[in-house]
């Protein structure tokens, strides 16, 4: 999974669980908050992802309780899930730092060209 990276909703679910055990509805609201409302998970996507993560051993059930007659299950990150999230965060950070460095270089190059043009224009005047 780490070799090819993980999908954004999965990354955000793991990030939400990094704050501590949470139940399904809390994960959905936390993911929306983390992504500034850009990613809005729905129940079908959330539980398909949770099932996959449980099968892969990245997430496990922390505890269960019944609230208003409805089952509420809390999920937590496993050590393997923590490793997965850390590896993905490091990968994204590395990509982001390369992108930032190149953007800085691009901006510096553009500024240099602009300066030269200004200088040339000044010389001919």
């Amino acid at each position: 999974m780490t070799k090819h990276g993980i999908q954004e909703p999965t990354f955000l679910i793991l990030t939400a669980l990094a704050a501590g055990p949470q139940h399904g509805y809390a994960i959905m609201t936390d993911v929306a908050r983390i992504s500034d409302d850009r990613v809005r998970l729905r129940a079908g996507t959330l539980y398909a992802a949770l099932d996959r993560l449980r099968t892969d051993g990245a997430v496990d059930i922390d505890r269960e309780e019944v609230v208003d007659g409805r089952l509420r299950r809390y999920y937590r990150l496993t050590p393997s899930g923590t490793e997965l999230l850390a590896a993905e965060a490091a990968r994204l950070t590395a990509h982001a730092s390369v992108a930032t460095a190149r953007l800085r270089k691009l901006a510096a190059g553009a500024a240099h060209v602009a300066l030269r043009r200004t200088g040339l224009a000044g010389g001919t005047a």
Binding site: G24, Y25, M28, A43, L46, Y47, L50, D51, R70, L71, R72, R73
Partner: peptide, 9 residues
Amino acid sequence: VYGEEMIGV
């Protein structure tokens, strides 16, 4: 495994 929980959510 998830049916009742999904209904709740």
